[in-house]
């Protein structure tokens, strides 16, 4: 079962988020989760089998893979990349302000000190 293996990837991403002590690492984990979700959607869209959703004059015999998830996932990829870019830009700023990108050290700096 492919969807199950894909769900494992998502769970690994969440495991990483809950254990990583570094901002960059967290951003990596978000990327993993996102790729996992995209793959899960496509896995399920392809559950019945079928061909690529590009049709000629007649419908293919074996049916097609679900095109709707694919269209939605293109949106998700674009969203994910922009989120990553924004997070990394914030990362650079955080480093120059706190001198570190470790969550524990950043959050323990008292405000205004």
């Amino acid at each position: 079962m492919n969807p199950l293996l894909t769900f494992v990837v998502i769970l690994i991403g969440f495991y990483g988020l809950s254990t990583s002590s570094n901002i960059i690492k967290s951003v990596f984990c978000v990327t993993i989760i996102e790729s996992g979700v995209i793959l899960l959607f496509l896995n399920l869209g392809n559950l019945d089998g079928g061909v690529i959703p590009i049709i000629g004059d007649a419908l293919p015999v074996g049916g097609i893979a679900d095109p709707l998830p694919q269209a939605l996932m293109i949106t998700t990829i674009v969203i994910g990349s922009t989120v990553t870019a924004l997070a990394l830009m914030l990362c650079i700023k955080v480093f120059h302000h706190y001198g570190t990108v470790e969550w524990a050290e950043i959050l323990s700096r008292e405000s205004g000190k």
């Binding site: 988020l17 901002i23 978000v30 989760i33 997070a87 955080v94």
Partner: peptide
Amino acid sequence: DSFRAGIYYLLLNISGVM
């Protein structure tokens, strides 16, 4: 501290939205 608040907010919310 706005940078650390921003990135904390962004990443936590994105994982929720996922």
